[in-house]
Computed example of a mutant assay.
Amino acid sequence: MTRTTLRYAFAVTLMATSGAVIAASAVVNLKTVLADPGRPDADKVRDADRKPAELIAFAGVKAGSTVAELGPGGGYFTRILTGAVGAKGHVYAMVGRPSPVLSDYAATHANLSVVSIQPGEINVPAPVDVVWTTLNYHDFKNNKVGDSDVAALTNAAAFKALKPGGVYFIVDHQAAPGAGTSVTSTLHRIEDKAVISEVEAVGFKLETRSALLAHAADDHTLAVRETGIRGKTDQFILKFRKPKK
């Protein structure tokens, strides 16, 4: 093999594997974030099931990113996202009620703002790179504002809040095929097909999905907090993109 041929073969291999190399690098860089002694031990115990480093890499969150997080709860992902975006990025945690835990955390992290919102709103000072929500979309379906459910309002708000080319990232508990939105208030699950249809209806395009949190042993018949299934539910990961034009 000639030297020119070797160079060409190396270039082809590099292009073919660059995506995997970037993703792996992002996971490695987040080890320090996950090991932060400021993270609660209870959060660290959940890392094996929730795979946060891999999710951050898949969503494309990186140093300097701006992120609007919807339904941050106790701040499990808030703390990780804040570490991932670094000092040059910013995380806006959207909360429907006061969160002393997140407010205390924001007091010592200049790149985190806790923002009080009404259901279906996203309030950011400028368009963001990523709108992120995990295990919340089914609950958005369970609430209404006037004649609209909060999911529809949230999807429209996410489209408006994102930069052109920005990412709308959704993770939730999978429902059985054909269940659609019928078990959002009972089993706290939703079918991925229903989410895709609703999100694309406001202008997003499904770019890709991941089976990272798939659990074949989950038959989708149990409520997500029942003993034996909690933390082990079959979950879908959807990455939508706002068109650049």
Score class of each variant (00 low, 15 high):
Val101Gln: 11
Asp147His: 07
Thr221Trp: 03
Gln174Ser: 08
Ser182Pro: 01
Thr32Phe: 00
Phe236Ser: 03
Asn29Ser: 13
Ala24His: 15
Leu14Asn: 11
Val12Leu: 11
Glu121Ser: 08
Lys160Ser: 13
Ser103Thr: 14
His109Cys: 02
Val128Asn: 09
Leu55Glu: 11
Leu34Ser: 11
Ala11Gly: 06
Pro52His: 12
Asp129Glu: 13
Val45Tyr: 07
Glu54Asn: 15
Gln118Thr: 13
Gly228Ser: 08
Val131Gly: 08
Arg189Glu: 00
Val145Ile: 12
Leu222Phe: 08
Asn155Leu: 01
Ala59Glu: 08
Arg97Leu: 02
Gly73Trp: 01
His215Lys: 15
Leu14Pro: 01
Phe77Asn: 10
Lys245Pro: 01
Pro40Asn: 08
Arg189Tyr: 00
Pro72Asn: 14
Gly228Arg: 10
Lys144Tyr: 09
Gly146Ala: 04
Gly178Asp: 06
Asp47Trp: 03
Ala23Met: 13
Asp49Phe: 07
Leu55His: 12
Ala106Val: 05
Ile229Asp: 01
Tyr105Cys: 04
Gly71Ala: 15
Ala35Gly: 12
Lys141Thr: 05
Val183Ile: 07
Lys88Met: 06
Phe236Gln: 03
Gly75Ile: 00
Ala26Met: 11
Ala42Met: 02
Pro127Cys: 11
Leu55Asp: 07
Ala110Phe: 06
Ala11Pro: 00
Asp43Val: 05
Ala16Leu: 15
Met1Gln: 06
Asp218Phe: 06
Lys193Gln: 01
Thr208Val: 05
Leu34Thr: 12
Val124Leu: 15
Pro72His: 13
Asp147Gln: 10
Ser116Gln: 12
Ile237Met: 12
Val67Gly: 10
Val202Pro: 00
Asp129Asn: 15
Phe204Arg: 02
Ala179Ser: 14
Ser197Asp: 00
Val61Cys: 12
His90Leu: 07
Arg209Met: 01
Gly146Asn: 08
Ala151Gly: 08
Gly165Ile: 09
Ala106Thr: 09
Ala20His: 14
Leu135Gly: 00
Leu153Tyr: 02
Thr32Pro: 00
Pro243Gln: 08
Val95Arg: 11
Arg7Tyr: 04
Tyr137Asp: 03
